[in-house]
């Protein structure tokens, strides 16, 4: 793992993740998660559904951001080269025509990238039927964006808007930093379970060593999720065909969590 995905997956990363429980607070309130064993089942289900969706979209976002960064980089190198007499660019019969062609390619690429980011955003929305979960995802994206702009500046974020889905933003940052889509997918798949696991420790006073061991036992499932995510992101021609597994109970828990405003709530989701 590169430094970027390590930092983004760190619980100490200041992106506002610590106030989200990923449904654990509501599950605990309803007695669905009571101990380490029930937590294990909850985390496995979350990993294979919300985790897989997030991982596939992070991988796709990493690919898209890397392409955008490459396109800009090529353009910049081209510009440098045109200023050098010895370069092949200078020998072209009609440099002005070549520049115009290059500019039109860049414009077409920008429009295509913008559409692709929009499609990823819309498809992630479509895979998140709970309004509370969409809000939580965008709230984490907004918070992460603040931290990300300071550490990994890039024009790519303008395409994502002020409230990007968290998984898309994490994927974009990994792509910008030159990390492969696999690391982006691993980062968000891990976050899909590490945050809820930490929330359970805080809410139930569970043995932190036992909970940490549960996370490690999830490794084969996490590897499978990452593999599926990376494979589909690489071989899916249309965004609509990215994985769309659902966990209706997670959607219902998220909705129930925000439904009773007067009730005790320690987490934002």
């Amino acid at each position: 793992m590169g430094l970027t995905s390590l930092v983004l997956a760190d619980a100490r990363f200041p992106g506002g993740g610590h106030v989200h429980s990923g449904g654990v607070e509501e599950a605990v309130a309803r007695g669905l998660v009571q101990d380490v064993e029930t937590l294990r089942g909850f985390l496995l289900g979350r990993l294979r559904t919300a985790g897989l969706v997030a991982a596939a979209f992070a991988a796709a976002a990493a690919r898209l951001a890397a392409r955008g960064t490459d396109a800009r980089g090529t353009d910049a190198r081209g510009t440098d080269a045109r200023g050098t007499d010895t370069d092949a660019w200078a020998a072209q019969a009609s440099p002005a025509g070549a520049w115009a062609a290059q500019a039109s390619v860049a414009g077409a690429w920008a429009a295509q990238a913008s559409r692709a980011w929009g499609a990823l955003d819309a498809e992630f929305d479509a895979r998140t039927p709970s309004q509370a979960q969409r809000e939580a995802s965008r709230a984490q994206g907004r918070g992460t964006l603040r931290a990300v702009r300071a550490a990994w500046p890039s024009p790519v974020y303008d395409e994502l808007g002020p409230r990007p889905h968290h998984a898309l933003l994490v994927g974009a940052v990994c792509g910008i930093a030159g990390e492969p889509p696999e690391e982006a997918a691993r980062c968000v798949a891990y976050l899909a379970v590490s945050g809820p696991a930490s929330a359970a420790v805080r809410l139930l006073g569970l043995d932190p060593f036992a909970v940490n061991a549960v996370l490690i036992h999830l490794e084969p499932a996490l590897d499978a999720v990452v593999e599926t995510a990376v494979h589909t992101a690489a071989h899916t021609a249309v965004t609509e065909d990215l994985p769309a597994p659902g966990a209706p109970v997670l959607d219902l828990l998220a909705q129930a969590h925000v439904a009773h405003r007067g009730r005790l709530r320690l987490f934002a989701s």
Binding site: R12, F13, P14, G15, G16, G17, H18, V19, H20, S21, A139, R142, G143, R146, A147, A199, R202, L203, R265, L266, F267, A268
Partner: peptide, 21 residues
Amino acid sequence: AVQTGCCPHTAIRDDITANLD
């Protein structure tokens, strides 16, 4: 009102995101 995920000091010191929002 902001939720602090059981960690009031974290929300004002280490990860101020929820409060900035």
